[in-house]
Amino acid sequence: MTGIVKWFNADKGFGFITPDDGSKDVFVHFSAIQNDGYKSLDEGQKVSFTIESGAKGPAAGNVTSL
């Protein structure tokens, strides 16, 4: 699925993605970002991701920028 990064705190390594389908915002951890180098996201960035079952509920996985 796709969405827009609502916010991401690079110091803490997590944030939230707002899915394009209008569903509830999804937690994203830096370890789910699939790019080389520094793993961070920018507010407003368009991303593709999967929904994984995290310890505290749904979380984004396999996050790639579009």
Rank of each mutant, 00 (worst) to 15 (best):
M1I: 10
M1D: 04
M1G: 07
M1F: 14
T2A: 06
G3E: 00
G3P: 00
G3T: 00
V5Y: 01
V5Q: 00
V5L: 03
V5C: 06
K6D: 03
K6G: 03
W7Y: 09
W7R: 03
W7M: 05
F8Y: 11
F8R: 00
F8V: 04
N9S: 11
N9V: 05
A10C: 09
A10E: 08
A10V: 13
A10H: 13
A10K: 14
D11E: 15
D11V: 15
K12R: 12
G13N: 03
G13R: 05
F14D: 01
F16C: 04
F16N: 02
P19M: 06
D21C: 08
D21I: 08
D21W: 07
D21T: 07
G22D: 05
G22M: 07
K24R: 14
K24C: 10
K24Y: 09
D25R: 04
D25K: 04
V26Y: 05
V26D: 00
F27T: 02
F27P: 03
H29W: 04
H29C: 05
F30V: 12
F30G: 05
S31E: 05
S31W: 07
S31D: 04
A32R: 05
A32H: 07
Q34L: 14
Q34R: 11
N35C: 12
N35F: 11
N35R: 08
N35S: 14
D36T: 12
D36F: 10
D36W: 08
G37P: 09
Y38I: 12
Y38K: 10
Y38Q: 12
K39P: 10
K39Q: 11
K39A: 08
S40N: 09
S40L: 11
S40A: 12
L41N: 01
D42S: 14
D42C: 15
D42N: 13
E43V: 13
G44Q: 05
G44D: 04
G44W: 04
G44N: 07
K46H: 13
V47R: 00
V47Y: 02
V47T: 02
S48A: 14
F49I: 02
F49G: 00
T50I: 14
I51Q: 05
I51H: 05
E52P: 03
E52N: 09
S53G: 13
S53W: 14
G54D: 12
A55I: 13
A55S: 12
A55G: 12
K56V: 09
K56L: 10
K56H: 15
G57F: 08
P58S: 09
P58F: 11
A59I: 15
A59F: 15
A60N: 01
G61Y: 14
N62H: 13
N62D: 06
N62W: 10
V63K: 01
T64A: 09
T64Q: 14
S65F: 15
S65Y: 12
L66E: 08
